[in-house]
Simulated scan of single mutants.
Amino acid sequence: MNNPASPAVARTERRHRLRRWALGLVLALSVPGGLSWYGHSLVAPHPEQFASGVSRDAPALKTIRQTALAQTFLRDFRVQEHWSSCGPASLRNVLASLGRPVARERDLFQGDTLAWLRMAVTGMTLDEVAALAESTGIGQVQVRRDLSEQALRTLLGSLSTPGRRLIVNFDRAPIHGVSLGHFSPIGGYDPASDRILLLDVTPGFGVQLVPTALLSEAMNTQDPVSGRSRGLIQIDAGPRDAD
């Protein structure tokens, strides 16, 4: 996996993670409904806040949903099981699209209960989700940061490459009007309208067409936990019999 964090960045990320743990535990113990209330209050969809050009019902959406890549996802697409598990949910959907289904998000952690509980309380960073993907043995996993719009379009144009999948990490604010880090897989690209098929794993948001420029803006933001730029995870799966 490329783009490893420097020791200084890793120390900063650990400090931020401890703060996330503290916040999560306070919410769990002091708020009625605990973490489920906290997550729901942040991510409840408000379509009237969606940015111009983001669509859940455009004619182009119906067309792109029928493409081969989109169909590999939609045959067994599942929303996230927990408010904090958008990263593992995205990875589970990628694996299912490649014919390697996982029954539960927790199974991705391969018995590491501490890592699972940490995710449940604090969520995950881009590098953490990439490491989780790499641990499945799916194939080559790359973290891509600071992509220009044109570089993003070029990468989107390569989605027909067998076994290639993309998981995007972005701030919802430019797209959905609420500032919150999020993960979702990309299910296709429509060059005619220059829009991306975003397979949002949060219940209620649904499959959307998002302008490339808008998703690029949302990706090129800083994750306050890691102190690093958001971006995407590129997965190039190896042959099934190589597992």
Rank of each mutant, 00 (worst) to 15 (best):
1 M>R: 11
11 R>G: 04
16 H>R: 14
22 A>R: 13
22 A>W: 10
22 A>G: 13
26 V>Q: 09
29 L>M: 11
30 S>N: 06
33 G>T: 06
39 G>C: 09
47 P>I: 07
60 A>W: 12
64 I>W: 08
66 Q>V: 08
68 A>N: 05
72 T>E: 13
76 D>W: 07
78 R>G: 02
81 E>I: 09
81 E>N: 05
85 S>L: 08
91 L>A: 05
92 R>E: 02
94 V>C: 00
94 V>G: 00
97 S>P: 04
97 S>I: 00
98 L>D: 02
103 A>K: 06
104 R>F: 03
106 R>A: 11
112 D>T: 07
114 L>P: 05
114 L>S: 12
117 L>Y: 10
122 T>Y: 00
124 M>K: 03
125 T>N: 11
125 T>C: 14
126 L>V: 07
127 D>Y: 02
127 D>Q: 15
131 A>C: 10
131 A>W: 01
133 A>D: 00
135 S>E: 06
135 S>R: 13
138 I>M: 00
141 V>S: 03
142 Q>I: 02
143 V>Q: 03
144 R>P: 04
146 D>C: 08
149 E>D: 07
151 A>E: 14
153 R>Y: 15
154 T>A: 12
156 L>N: 04
157 G>D: 01
158 S>W: 08
159 L>Y: 13
164 R>I: 04
165 R>I: 02
167 I>Y: 00
171 D>I: 12
183 F>G: 03
186 I>G: 10
189 Y>W: 15
193 S>G: 15
196 I>C: 06
196 I>K: 05
197 L>F: 10
198 L>F: 13
205 F>H: 15
210 V>P: 02
210 V>T: 03
217 E>L: 11
220 N>T: 03
223 D>E: 10
226 S>G: 09
227 G>Q: 10
231 G>N: 11
232 L>A: 07
235 I>V: 08
235 I>M: 02
236 D>M: 05
237 A>E: 01
